[in-house]
Design a protein around this nucleic acid. Structure first.
Lengths: 185, 185
DNA sequence: GTCTATATCAAGATAGAC
DNA sequence: GTCTATCTTGATATAGAC
C-alpha cells in the first residue's frame, strides 16, 4: 500500500489543532508527526524548524480571516448592517467550531513576549480585525468612536473565548456578536 | 558569607514572574532556580515537582485576590458605588503593575485543557471574581442582570489585558474599570 | 517523501555529601 | 538548606538509505 504524500497544509492543520489544545511549547515535533501519521524526522522535509511551523500556523489562520472575514468590511454592495451581520456570523462559525479557542490569542499570551516574529504576526492579525470592524462602524459612528467600539469588541471576543474554553460553554460567547450587531441598528 | 535561606514564598514569586513572561512549559526548573540564586536540584527541597510550583503559584494569586479584592464586595460598611470604585482600583493596581498580564488567564489558555488541577483552580478564581462583582451589582440590578454584567466585565478585562500585553499600552485597559463604575452610578 | 538511526542538548527529578 | 553529581527521558534537529 503506497504511502500518502503529506502536504504542508495538512501538517499545518494538524499542528494548529495541537497548538490550540496543548500549547505551543507543550506540543513536540513527535506529537505533530504522530497526528500526521509520520515519524518526527520526516516533518523536517517540509519545515526547517518548529518555529517555522508555529509562524506558518499563525499566518495560515491570519490569511483565512483576511480572505473570509475582514474582507467583508470592504465590500461595496452591502449595507453596514448586512456587513456586520455577515462579519459576526463568519466569526462565530469559526470560533464555535474551533476546539481550543483562538490560536493567535493563545500564543499572544504564551509566546509573544519573547518571540518577536510571532508577536508581530499576532499584532497584525488583531490590528486588521479592529480596522475591519471600525471600517464597518464608521457608516454610523465617528472614526474615533468606531475604533474604540472595534477594540472593545475584539477584546471582549477574546476574553469570552477564554471563558468559553474554561467553562466549556458557548452561551456568553454568542451574546458578544449580538451586541455589536445591535450597535449598528 | 552565609547563604540566605530561601523561602517557599520567594520561590513562588520568582516562578510567577517567569510563568507570566515566558509561559509555564517554557519555564524550566533551572530558570526558576537561577532567578532564586539557587541550583535546580535545590528547588526540590521546597517543592516536590514543577507541577506543584505551578499549582501553588495559581493558589497564591487566587488567595491574594480573595483577601484583597473579592472581599471588598462583602463588606458591610460601604455603599455599592464605593465598593465598585475600590474593587476596580485594587484590580487596576494589580494588573497595571503585573508584567506579563494575568497568570490565571495565561494558564487558562496554555495548560488548562490538559491539567485538571490547574483548570479547577483557574475556574474557581474566575467564578469567585464574577460572584463578587455580581454581589456588588445586585444593589442596583436584578440577580440575573448582575451576573451577566459581571461575566461580561471579567471577560472584557481579560481580553483587554491580552491586548495590553500585545500592544504594550494600558490606555484601553483603564476604560474597562471606568465602565463598570459608571454602571453603578 | 518517508524511513532508520543518531547526534546533541536540556528537561524533570533523585541521592547523598557538606 | 544548598551543593555536586547523576539518572532518565524526551526535545529539536540532521544524515543518509530506500
Amino acid at each position: 500500500m503506497a504511502r500518502k504524500k503529506t502536504s504542508k497544509e495538512e501538517i499545518l492543520q494538524h499542528s494548529i489543532k495541537l497548538f490550540k489544545l496543548n500549547g505551543y511549547y507543550n506540543t513536540s515535533m513527535a506529537n505533530i508527526a504522530d497526528a500526521c501519521g509520520l515519524i518526527k524526522g520526516s516533518i523536517y522535509h517540509h519545515f526547517k524548524s518548529k518555529e517555522e511551523i508555529g509562524l506558518e500556523s499563525l499566518k495560515y489562520i491570519h490569511k483565512y480571516f483576511e480572505e473570509n472575514i475582514y474582507s467583508i468590511a470592504y465590500r461595496k454592495n452591502l449595507s453596514g448592517l448586512k456587513k456586520i451581520e455577515l462579519f459576526v456570523k463568519k466569526t462565530d462559525d469559526y470560533f464555535l467550531h474551533s476546539e481550543g479557542g483562538c490560536l493567535l490569542g493563545n500564543l499572544a499570551l504564551e509566546v509573544s513576549s519573547e518571540n518577536i516574529l510571532f508577536k508581530d504576526e499576532i499584532r497584525e492579525y488583531f490590528l486588521n480585525w479592529e480596522k475591519a470592524l471600525a471600517h464597518i462602524l464608521e457608516a454610523k459612528y465617528t472614526q474615533s468612536t468606531s475604533i474604540e467600539l472595534a477594540q472593545e469588541y475584539v477584546a471582549l471576543t477574546q476574553g469570552t473565548i477564554m471563558m468559553m474554553t474554561l467553562y466549556s460553554s458557548s452561551e456568553n460567547y454568542l451574546k458578544v456578536g449580538q451586541k455589536i450587531i445591535a450597535s449598528m441598528r
